[in-house]
Every structure is written in structure tokens, then in C-alpha cells.
Design a protein around this nucleic acid. Structure first.
Lengths: 329, 329
DNA sequence: TGTTTTCCGGAAATCGTTTTCCACAATTAT
DNA sequence: ATAATTGTGGAAAACGATTTCCGGAAAACA
């Protein structure tokens, strides 16, 4: 394997000089740079990222932490977009990505998690979809031992950034649109996880709408479960209701229940997943571009790794209607 | 960070001795082992995998190569199962996993790919869903520079194993079952990719069935596309046909087309993805356990890395009918 | 011309392991 | 008792980078 040593020999310079050129340090003359770069070309040299990671604690090894909480095909789609978005951008920024699932961290103490990450020379993390209850992750962020970007969790400090879309506003918007299109004055809201950050925000949004418009509002906890949404709809949905759901999957469950009950009332969802096209009925939903969110998260993490300060980033969303033709491939 | 050096000091032995204990080498007395293990406990030591990888070219860094060819939510489900299956098992076997998408390898020469893998200290690969046309990957396997496990591609040599299910038999079985349940004598077969290994095998299976049963068989290429399956069904499906599809997604497209045409004929699919539950009609399909396949692939790769010889492994499958209740979460 | 400053490039230590080789002690064989 | 064998642990050289520090040449200043 061709190493930096071979490049140095070929270029007739010292190893350290090659390293400097490669990493764009100052104090290297143009002439020397040229020699080195030429040698790199000739030898087809590519630096060993493992050695680099060992040597400088800086070299970008990054963990992607996914919450596989409910495994379902709907979530699969979202997670795949997270993963491909993350890895794609990471390659562009020369970061190595290790994918980790929350299940691998279960029953681990903070100490063990830190040790595991350190043993992998990981210096940065991107955490997707973490819940309020996850004590270990919270303490991990608090400890400020790693640069962290959270997605959909408002946790910011000196070395951690947070990326999200304004869930409350989005929920408000999509429900309001559905309402206006259908002339109702009563809402059944099927919420997500009790302890989820996004769920809480979405509830705020729907409450604001109800207040502003003077609507009656019935909130039930659907745990992001299609089955539960179905059951809750059977139990609580009245003819007057517009059913607003905290996720597309729940919206599909609700819609199916309504169809079984021969009640034809509007339902709206949240996420913009493909499955919505198969729901049998066109619905409003909030489309989040998960790939872009992931890509932004990586970009932000890179900024943190380069010494940037933690901050919040709010991304935009889009209201769409999804039907079969749109999702057909 | 606590290193092997600290452990050595704590245990009152040499660094090399600690390493030997950790890696289970012989020529270490029980007493010394005990001392070392105790020190490891006390210091909460965890070896730095990066340093290990650098030092011994053996230390298990493994790449997971995914073909994202058609991105669709159906494939997302499959890929997520591949990914989680791979990573889950890899953790158990102490392997690091780097996830790579085929798109990252596009337009790269064999040399570049090899260099990239080497620069990452990757010694083993698992390749999911590769096509016959992929010259670079074929040459990569031929070169025998890396231990490789292919899934659904019959490429075996001294250092590469292949894992698959018997696609021909599975296609034969599921079509035969559907046929027997419905008393037809004519098949419209919507095939997958022209150059896919699995597609070819499945065609063999359906041909054998047609021969054995004396059925008329019309084969059309559906490219694993739901849209194309839909169009082909509109164009070619006759009342007498049973429509056999090389994937669930195509089966859904075909089923929808039939419904639009008010022809009610059986359709069968292949894969066993969740989306089948939303098709509106219960269908036969072949259920492949992708998570298990991935897990077996990792196990096999580990065997190769430990010096095992390349071989073939054939996994089993299951015929199922999928309906909404089964997929509801 | 002599002194200071700036600019370049190299030598060497370091990161945390693995692995080879060697020395010593303990055991066995002669 | 001496020689040969074995078992056990340590010293030290890798692995391939990064990074600190230092010395000499060139440029700037006096």
C-alpha cells in the first residue's frame, strides 16, 4: 500500500511536508506543493483515514444515531432518507460515518457510551429522533464531550446544534388548510408519542388553531401507531369531525376506519411519505425533506467540528396532497 | 482516555501481555489473565478499534455496499432490513461497518475503488443486489483482494462467498400455489431487470412451471417498476391470465390496473414487503427475511475474514399471503 | 555589514494497538 | 548434574498518519 512516506520519497521532501500540503497548512511554497501534488498523482496516493484518525483526534469519524423505535415501513422510508442523505453529504465533506441504532445503546450507562464512541475515535454525532426520556443521550449532550447535531430535538449548547422544522407551525398550517377546504368546526386530533419533542410541538400547533378559530378540539394519544389511530377513530370520530393526525401512518389508519364506518370526512397527515399514495383517498400532509435535513445536519456537524459554535437551524416545509400517481415509480 | 498502557501499569504487566490476554492468545498463565481482566474492569478499558485496525490489517472494518438503483419506499424497507441486520450482527461479531452506496462508486475505476477501500482499512465487503453489468464490482471480486460476501449474486471464489435463496424454486412455488388456488391455465409474467441475477432465476422458475403444467406463458419485462407493471397489465392482461410478478411492487401495480379494468384475476408477487398489505387485495407472495439474510452474510464474512474458504449458502423462503391486518402496527 | 525577523522544510515524538522476537525461569530429558 | 525443551512475559518495532519544534536560508531592518 502506498503511504505518505512513498509520496515524500517520490517528491523528494519530508513526510511532514507532504502532510502539510495535503491538509492545506501554510508555510509551504508553491513549488513544493506542486512537487508533492505531482507525486500524489503519480502514485495514486490516498491517505489512510484510519491512521489519520488515530493520529489526530480531529479526523472526522462521525456517528449517525438512528432511533428505530417503531419499526415500520413508513419509518423505513424516513430512515433511509436520513441515512442516504447523511452518508452522501459526509462523503462530500470527507467524513467517515458509522451508523448506530438506539438499540445498541440500550441499557448502557453514559460512561459506556462515551467509551464506545471514543474507542471508535468518533468525535461527532448526529442524532435523529430522540425522545425526551432518553437520559443517557441528554447527559451525553450536556457533557459536551462530542460535537453533536440533533434533529427534531431542541438541544443546543456551545458544541451542539439543533435542526428542526417548525412543527407547531406546520401542524397549524396543514390542519387549517384542511379545515378551510372542508368547512368544519370540530377536530379530532390524534397525537404522537407522549414524550416526543415533535409530538409536543404539533399539539401546540393544533391547540393554537383551535383557539384562534374557536373550534372544538378532542386530543387523543395515538403513539404514531396506525392500529391505534384506527381504534381511536372508531371510538371517537363523529360525523362533524375533521381528523388531524400527527403522522401519515396514523392518517391512513384513521382514513381506513372512517371508510369502514362509512363516514366520509377529511383526514390530514404529517410527513409526506410514499405510503400516502396508497391510502385510497387523497389527503393533505406536511412534506418534510428528510434527505435535505440529514444533509444539512452533516454540514452543520462539520461546522461544529471545525470549531463553530452551537446554534439552531430551522428548515422549511411544504404542504402537499399525495395521491397514487405521485408516488408511482 | 484509558489505554492499554494504563491497563498494563495497573495490572503490573507489559503492554504486549495485555494485548495477548485481550485477544485470547496462548502462553499466558491463568493468574496473569486474571490480573489483566481485573485491571480492565477497574479502569473500564475498551480497546481503541482505530489503533487496532491500523496496527493489524486484520481488524474488522467492513463495508456494506448497497445498490440504491431504484429508490422507492418498497426498496427502502428491504434496504433498511439489510442495514439493520448487517449492523446488528456486526456489533455482535465486533466488526465496524461502513455503509457505502453504489452511487458513490459510479464512474470509479477498479483502482480507485480498491484505493478507497484500502484507505479506509476495509478488509471485507458485503454486496447486496449487484447487477450482471457491474464490471468494476466483478473485477473487484475476481481480484480476490478483499473478502467478499455477495447477496443474490452467484459469485464464489477462494475468498468470496455467495448467499441467496433459490429464486427459481421460489418463483415456481408461489406461482404454482396461486395457479392451483385459482384454476387457470395461462400466465402473464412480469419480469424484473434484464440484467439482474435474481430476475433471470425467477424467469427460469416460471418457465419450468409453464412447461411442467403445459401452460401458456407470456413474459414481459417490467424493470421492477410499479408504473411499468401497470402499463403492461393494461396492455397485455387477458381475462384468462394469472398475473405473476417478479416483485410485490409490480404486483401492486398490476393489481391496480386489473381493478381499473374491472378484471378480477389473481396476481402474485415476490418479496413480502409491508406495502402488500395496502394493495387492496390479498395476494400470494414469497417472503424473504432480509434481516436474516444480512445477518447470515455478516456471519459468513466473519468466517472468511478468519481464513475460511469461499462457499455458497442457500437460505429458505416462505410462501405467504399478506393482508392489511398483518402489516398494521 | 550585522542583526532581527520571516519563511520553509525536516527530524522526531506521538496516537493506541499488534506482533515478532528474545530472555528468563521452570520443567523435562539425558 | 547438565542439557534440552517448554512456558511465560517483556522490549521494541511496526502501522500511517499528525503535529510540535527547531534550524537554516532568505528577506528585512538597522
Amino acid at each position: 500500500m502506498v503511504s505518505i512516506k512513498d509520496v515524500a520519497k517520490q517528491a523528494g521532501v519530508a513526510i511532514s511536508t507532504v502532510s502539510k500540503v495535503l491538509n492545506g497548512y501554510p508555510n509551504v511554497s508553491e513549488e513544493t506543493k506542486k512537487k508533492v501534488n505531482q507525486a500524489v498523482e503519480e502514485l495514486n496516493f490516498m491517505p489512510n483515514t484510519v491512521a489519520a484518525a488515530l493520529s489526530s483526534k480531529q479526523s472526522g469519524r462521525v456517528a449517525l444515531l438512528l432511533n428505530l423505535g417503531n419499526v415500520s415501513q413508513a419509518v423505513d422510508e424516513i430512515n433511509m432518507q436520513y441515512i442516504s442523505g447523511t452518508i452522501g453529504r459526509a462523503v462530500e465533506l470527507n467524513l467517515d460515518v458509522i451508523t448506530i441504532f438506539d438499540s445498541m445503546l440500550k441499557n448502557k450507562s453514559l460512561d459506556e457510551v462515551v467509551r464506545y464512541l471514543r474507542s471508535q475515535s468518533i468525535t461527532g454525532l448526529i442524532i435523529f429522533g430522540m425522545s425526551k426520556e432518553d437520559k443517557v443521550l441528554h447527559r451525553l449532550i450536556d457533557a459536551q464531550l462530542f460535537k453533536i447535531v440533533t434533529v427534531d430535538a431542541p438541544l443546543v449548547n456551545a458544541v451542539s446544534s439543533a435542526i428542526w422544522i417548525d412543527q407547531a407551525a406546520a401542524q397549524y398550517d396543514v390542519a387549517r388548510k384542511t379545515l378551510k377546504e372542508n368547512e368544519g368546526n370540530s377536530i379530532l386530533y390524534l397525537a404522537g408519542k407522549k414524550n416526543g419533542y415533535v409530538s409536543g410541538e404539533r399539539i401546540k400547533g393544533i391547540k393554537r388553531l383551535a383557539e384562534e378559530e374557536g373550534l372544538s378540539l378532542l386530543v387523543r394519544n395515538g403513539e404514531f401507531s396506525e392500529r391505534l389511530a384506527r381504534e381511536l377513530t372508531f371510538r371517537y370520530a363523529k360525523k362533524k369531525h375533521i381528523v388531524v393526525c400527527a403522522s401519515d401512518l396514523m392518517a391512513i389508519g384513521a382514513m381506513r376506519a372512517l371508510m369502514d364506518m362509512d363516514i366520509f370526512r377529511p383526514v390530514c397527515g404529517f410527513d409526506g411519505i410514499t405510503l400516502m399514495g396508497y391510502a385510497g383517498q387523497q389527503m393533505n400532509t406536511v412534506k418534510q425533506d428528510f434527505g435535505r435535513i440529514a444533509s444539512e445536519a452533516v454540514t452543520e456537524l462539520k461546522r461544529l467540528l471545525d470549531g463553530g459554535e452551537g446554534r439552531q437551524i430551522v428548515l422549511d416545509y411544504e404542504l402537499v396532497q399525495m395521491k397514487y400517481d405521485d408516488v408511482l415509480i
